[in-house]
């Protein structure tokens, strides 16, 4: 009887935990939901609360020509061309005046600007060559750094696994040191080495070198995995007269697919989300994505739609990758893989 009550109480406790996790999950999702909504809320309505993006009231024909650039970051030259407007237009003229003067159907103007009202942040950014360039460069950097950096770390780990010699564990300890050195601590000397001495300032190579230099997590990850591979494999290659390179290329590399996926899942966000290196090494026109998002506050000042759209664009790829790889995270964490 007593046991029964205890059991029931425990079940109730478990229900409570599930309920708590539900609430916590909702609270965690809410900021991202609001971010999406805010990327569609015009600055003029930003001071009101919107649970969903506000309804469009249609284009206001009394707004002036010049204000289109300020409020919606619209390229006026392009708009003029696409609307078939020619000649000088007074920035203070309203659109109803323009339509009368230039003899253009008001509906055409309304239709043209309709999408700009809601999606102007997204449109402005997707038409912003610098922004698009930063996305492309960040993708290239992330992919190349993961391939090269991963390969280098596998090479390192292939030697260190098993700690066959005393100095192997010293090298391992040296890599572990990276865990307690924040990037910002050494950024000034690093800039002197890469930017000044090697002349890599304003070069993506400086970032690439920093991303592939290796560190505690990749070396730990691959070393732990490779040390589980039976040594007989290595010996058999040697008996067959193969050298270490052949062992590495034909035996080891095909075997490290699983830790390589984990490595990608861990390192992609780190590289994608890097702010400091881009800020330090690159000039604003060459910024990678996150420094670019940071600079949006300067370029688009009060166009919150553009700023929040930029932030969303920086988040979406990581989220997609996270959804693909989340099994790896959960499995590796829940199996008690992190033991120190």
């Amino acid at each position: 009887m007593h046991k029964n009550i205890k059991r029931k109480r425990y079940d109730l406790f478990r229900v409570f935990i599930i309920f708590f996790f539900l609430i916590y999950s909702i609270v965690t999702i809410v900021p991202f939901y609001f971010l999406g909504v805010r990327s569609l809320v015009p600055t003029t309505e930003a001071a009101q609360f919107h649970l969903v993006p506000p309804k469009l009231e249609g284009f206001n024909m009394d707004s002036t020509f010049g204000n289109m650039a300020t409020y919606y970051s619209i390229d006026l030259k392009k708009a003029k061309k696409e609307l078939g407007l020619t000649g000088y237009i007074n920035p203070n003229a309203t659109w109803s005046e323009i339509s009368k003067e230039k003899n253009i159907n008001p509906d055409k103007i309304k239709k043209y600007f309709r999408s700009y009202l809601r999606y102007n942040g997204w449109i402005a950014l997707l038409n912003d060559k610098r922004f698009i360039n930063s996305v492309i460069m960040t993708v290239i950097l992330a992919v190349s750094s993961i391939v090269v950096g991963g390969l280098l770390s596998v090479m390192t780990a292939s030697v260190l696994a098993g700690f066959r010699k005393k100095w192997h564990s010293w090298i391992y300890a040296l890599y572990m040191l990276q865990m307690i050195i924040s990037p910002v601590v050494i950024i000034i000397p690093v800039y002197i080495i890469l930017g000044k001495n090697l002349g890599l300032s304003n070069s993506y190579i400086a970032l690439f070198l920093q991303f592939i230099k290796g560190g505690a997590v990749p070396v730990m990850l691959f070393t732990a995995y490779i040390s589980t591979i039976p040594g007989t494999l290595k010996d058999s290659v040697q008996i067959d007269g193969g050298n270490r390179l052949q062992y590495f290329l034909y035996i080891l590399l095909p075997l490290v697919k699983v830790p390589f996926a984990t490595f990608t899942a861990i390192m992609f966000p780190v590289i994608w989300n890097d702010l400091l290196q881009g800020l330090v090494f690159l000039k604003p026109e060459k910024y990678t994505l996150i420094p670019m998002v940071n600079s949006l506050q300067g370029t688009y000042t009060t166009n919150y739609q553009a700023i929040f759209a930029g932030l969303s664009i920086s988040i979406i790829p990581v989220l997609i990758l996270y959804m693909i790889f989340q099994d790896l995270f959960v499995r590796s964490s829940l199996s008690g893989a992190i033991k120190g």
């Binding site: 040191l177 000397p189 690093v190 290796g214």
Partner: peptide, 27 residues
């Protein structure tokens, strides 16, 4: 062989993580 496999990354790692502390000293 050990050195051949280790050197590409350890050289990078050393110059971008440990060396900065050394060149900070004269500064």
């Amino acid at each position: 062989w050990d050195a051949a496999f280790l050197s590409p990354q350890i050289i990078l790692y050393f110059s971008l993580t440990i060396l900065p502390f050394i060149i900070a000293v004269p500064i």
